[in-house]
Simulated scan of single mutants.
Amino acid sequence: MTHAIIARQPGGPEVLEYREAEMPVPGAGQLLVKVAATGVNFVETYQRSGLYKVAFPFVPGSECSGTVEAVGEGVELFSVGDRVATAEGARSYAGYTLVEEHKALPVPDGVDDFTAAALPLQGMTAHFLMNSSFRVEPGQTVLAHAGAGGVGLLLTQLLKARGARVITTVSTDEKEALSREAGADVVLRYDGFAQKVRELTDGEGVHAVFDGVGKDTFDASLESLRVRGSMVLYGAASGPVPPVDPMRLHAGGSLSLTRPTVGHFLQNAQERHWRSAEIFDAAARGALKVRIGARYPLPEAAQAHRDLEGRRTTGKVLLVP
């Protein structure tokens, strides 16, 4: 037996219960991974609440790091004892989980288990946002919301390494300090940010906005864009955005709007390797610093969700079995 966090019905954080669970058995092409740490992500609050449809009873979690304990038939790329991570697992709020071989990422020496658990989803998200959703070029100016969040801190570092001018938004002085430490050129509060962005860009606006906040920032994000700018809406921490009239994009200056999700940018082994190798290599070299904002024992998953939804966290939130 092992333990896992199980939600028996949709609801608030209180539905997350720490219970005994059967030990998973790897099938063909699967790895049995002893979990060292699990990444907590906003999508799991959507799933838990019922906003995103999942089957209950439900064990959350797609991201983790750990050690291979056993392998299923046909596994060729990994062996017992290998350190791995994944952003595309399932049921990782647990002591043990199964990972498909082709979705497992080798963890290089120099990257510890906590960093390995914190990087895959948010690191590869930051990577696809700036390389694929909107290809940021040196000298461009971009706005990134939630600059002290897990994605925000990684995205800021990667954008600065690319040579972009980075404006971020945060809600507190503490978060401003973290965003500046990550390299942000200008850090704003959310109130009136569109007007301030215009002033900072001589009235032109930014080339792109990376918005994981959603409802509360969406309108002003559009107002922050220059002609032919791109709105990259990758999350909804403040709630889903209401339906949008496409004529707003016309009126704003022939704007582009995209709503990407990480799974669509990990379509094959080549793409998965490209993104993961670049972020793990940067972390191993010390060029990409990962902030672990909080670690909770696995039984305290409900409190982790409360703090994440209440915007009381910075950087990455982990659960530790």
Rank of each mutant, 00 (worst) to 15 (best):
I6C: 12
P10W: 06
G11D: 06
R19N: 05
E22R: 14
M23G: 05
P24W: 03
G27E: 10
F42Q: 06
K53Q: 14
F56M: 09
G61F: 07
S62M: 06
S65R: 10
A70E: 13
G72W: 04
V75Q: 11
E76I: 03
E76W: 00
L77F: 02
T86S: 15
T97D: 01
L98E: 10
V99H: 03
E100Y: 00
H102C: 01
L105T: 13
V107T: 08
V107M: 12
G110C: 08
F114N: 09
G123C: 09
T125D: 03
H127D: 15
L129M: 04
L129P: 02
R135L: 10
V136Y: 02
V136C: 11
P138S: 10
V142E: 05
L143A: 07
A144S: 13
H145Y: 08
H145I: 10
A146T: 06
A146V: 07
L154H: 10
K160D: 00
E174F: 14
E174N: 11
K175V: 11
R189D: 12
R189G: 15
R189H: 09
G192K: 07
L200F: 02
G203W: 12
E204N: 02
H207I: 00
V209F: 06
D211R: 13
R226M: 11
S230E: 07
V232Y: 02
A236D: 09
P246T: 04
M247V: 11
L249V: 11
T258F: 00
V262F: 00
H264M: 05
Q267N: 08
E271F: 00
R275Y: 05
A277Y: 03
I279C: 06
D281L: 07
R285D: 13
V290G: 05
P297G: 13
A304D: 04
R312K: 15
R312A: 14
G315Q: 13
